[in-house]
Design a protein around this nucleic acid. Structure first.
Lengths: 112, 112
DNA sequence: GGAGTTACTCACAAAAAAATGAGTGGTATA
DNA sequence: TATACCACTCATTTTTTTGTGAGTAACTCC
């Protein structure tokens, strides 16, 4: 049973309506997403390659975060009919555009 | 009973160790924090003023996020012995430095 | 004495995010 | 036939985050 009026969902919508920052933060705040974007940019652009560099992420979370990044337009995917199937991910323009902001965040974090 | 080795906590530490972005995101990803920072910058710098502009936030969450922002060095507080007691918040240098990054995020979010 | 103001805090409940363990389908190699 | 690879997906549990409702202290005004 879904409560349409749960405060939680209501508050999320409220925040989206008053400020776009919340939308932006939601698309990149998934625990592994920032690192996934960076790795994809550097050529670790497949499910199994990402698992190598993020060894402790669970399959399910990795799969879901890939789907979400795709749905939010930060990455695209190409299915290559090799054997076994191979799927390559790449950053879209929007995905590429977030990288300098992530850098800025990292630098900011070192401030005193 | 606390599991020191829960994957959840382990993964968080792992991410912090490999990339500062995750630390930065954690400090600002609380649902209300970005907006709180902006309002404090604009003079809505007290508990009750923040409640006015964020009417649906709960007292507990507002209080906790203020504590966290303070612990992370983004805001400072001044207790003024009026009656009733009054507490003013202000952005630190670090808190001020995040504002342009938040703006950049908002702009980025509008990209196609 | 009772109500109101400010700035919280606490125990608890609900919702969301992340993790676990197993399973799918196609192909190819031992 | 059995095992392995790749790229997932599912049902379920665990952990974290957010929200609810009530309560606190100190003081003032009626």
């Amino acid at each position: 049973m879904i409560k349409e009026t749960s405060s939680n969902a209501f508050n999320r919508k409220f925040l989206h309506s008053v400020c776009r920052i919340n939308g932006a933060l939601e698309t990149i705040a998934g625990r592994w997403k920032a690192l996934m974007l960076i790795h994809i940019a550097e050529g670790k652009n497949r499910f199994s390659l990402l698992k190598q560099v993020l060894p402790t992420v669970s399959d399910q979370v990795l799969g879901r975060q890939l789907r979400e990044l795709e749905a939010d337009g930060l990455i695209g995917k190409t299915v290559i009919a090799e054997v076994p199937v191979r799927v390559d991910y790449h950053l879209t323009d929007k995905g590429t555009a977030i990288l300098p902001i992530l850098d800025a965040l990292a630098e900011w974090h070192d401030k005193r």
